Amino acid sequence: MRTAAARPSCWTPAAPEPTHPDPAPASEPRTYHSSNEEKPLSSPSCIARPTENGYAGIYVHYDGVPSVQLPFLLTAYAYRFKGDHEALASYLIDIDEIGWEHLGDDLLFGAPDPIHNALANPDLDYSPRMTGVLTQTGAPAERMEINESNAADSEAGWVYVLRPEGIEVISLALGEDPAHGPVVRWNHSPLTQFSDHPVHWPAPTRSSRGRPSTTLAAQSVPARTPRPAHR
């Protein structure tokens, strides 16, 4: 699921220099668009870790909605990273590149066949890093840390904070509170069909902060429809 979203206006197209083989056919290269060009469909998000004042994390361009990000993060935590949320956070956040194009099937390593088959997409076989992005001056774009202070002004519509107790889901669409959201516990089923509507992910009241609880914006379903490729 993706909605139309603009690319930061300071970024212009550049020839990609992937660190992994590109699964896209040669006739359909990935490109990055400036603000005056036709935009690809995207739903930007941020994967973050908690900090003393809120959170800090990295940009993910595609598939940022809860129905895609949460199943991948829950599965990666449970199987590839064997319950180590700090290792998961380090894998996704502590990279040199400015961000990720999308989360991919490398996060599904070790998952049981029913989960892997429900989430995997043969056209999106890994998590590709964003490379070769230039500013309007032609200089390499620098990585921007997204945090609770600048998230509302970023292109991200969702923030996923990897906390010890679970994933805090912060919707930036309603403009209410860019620093808080409900928490999906780590033991939640990755086959849950999570809602993508921001109204289902309200920020907790001030009195309930510090007592995260699993959001009710989900309904378990027996199977999932594989997500479509971007291209």
Score class of each variant (00 low, 15 high):
Ala14Lys: 07
Ala14Val: 11
Ala14Arg: 13
Ala14Met: 04
Ala14Cys: 15
Ala14Trp: 04
Ala15Trp: 07
Ala15Glu: 14
Ala15Met: 12
Pro16Ala: 09
Pro16Gly: 08
Glu17Asp: 12
Glu17Trp: 06
Glu17Pro: 04
Glu17Ser: 12
Glu17Arg: 13
Glu17Cys: 14
Pro18Ser: 09
Pro18Thr: 11
Thr19Val: 15
His20Glu: 13
His20Asn: 09
His20Val: 09
His20Pro: 04
His20Ala: 13
Pro21Ile: 04
Pro21Gln: 02
Asp22Ile: 00
Asp22Gln: 01
Pro23His: 02
Pro23Met: 05
Pro23Ala: 02
Pro23Arg: 00
Ala24Pro: 02
Ala24Cys: 06
Ala24His: 03
Ala24Asn: 14
Ala24Phe: 10
Ala24Tyr: 07
Pro25Trp: 00
Pro25Cys: 01
Pro25Gln: 01
Pro25Asp: 02
Pro25Ala: 02
Ala26Gly: 13
Ala26Pro: 05
Ser27Lys: 07
Glu28Tyr: 08
Pro29Leu: 08
Arg30Asp: 12
Thr31Cys: 08
Tyr32Lys: 07
Tyr32Gln: 11
Tyr32Trp: 12
His33Asp: 08
His33Gly: 06
His33Asn: 09
His33Val: 15
Ser34Glu: 08
Ser34Ala: 10
Ser35His: 14
Ser35Arg: 05
Ser35Gln: 06
Asn36Gly: 03
Asn36Gln: 11
Asn36Lys: 09
Glu37Leu: 03
Glu37Trp: 00
Glu37Lys: 06
Lys39Leu: 12
Lys39Trp: 09
Lys39Ala: 14
Lys39Cys: 05
Lys39Ser: 14
Lys39Ile: 10
Pro40Gln: 10
Pro40Arg: 11
Leu41Cys: 03
Leu41Ala: 10
Ser42Phe: 06
Ser42Asn: 07
Ser42Thr: 11
Ser42Cys: 10
Ser42Ile: 01
Ser42Leu: 02
Ser42Met: 03
Ser43Ala: 12
Ser43Glu: 14
Ser43Lys: 06
Ser43Met: 08
Ser43Val: 03
Pro44Ile: 00
Ser45Asn: 10
Ser45Gln: 12
Ser45His: 14
Ser45Cys: 15
Cys46Gln: 08
Cys46Met: 09
Cys46Asp: 11
Cys46Glu: 05
Cys46Ser: 09
Ile47Thr: 09
Ile47Asp: 10
Ala48Tyr: 07
Ala48Thr: 12
Ala48His: 02
Pro50Phe: 03
Pro50Cys: 02
Pro50Val: 00
Thr51Glu: 00
Thr51Met: 00
Glu52Ser: 14
Glu52Phe: 03
Glu52Ala: 15
Asn53Arg: 14
Asn53Phe: 05
Gly54Lys: 01
Tyr55Ser: 15
Ala56Gly: 13
Ala56Met: 02
Gly57Met: 07
Gly57Leu: 13
Ile58Cys: 12
Ile58Leu: 15
Ile58Asn: 03
Ile58Phe: 04
Tyr59Phe: 15
Tyr59Trp: 14
Tyr59Ile: 04
Tyr59Asp: 14
Tyr59Thr: 12
Val60Pro: 02
Val60Trp: 03
Val60Glu: 05
His61Gly: 00
His61Trp: 08
Tyr62Trp: 07
Tyr62Cys: 01
Tyr62Ala: 01
Asp63Gly: 06
Asp63Pro: 01
Gly64Gln: 06
Gly64Ile: 02
Gly64Glu: 01
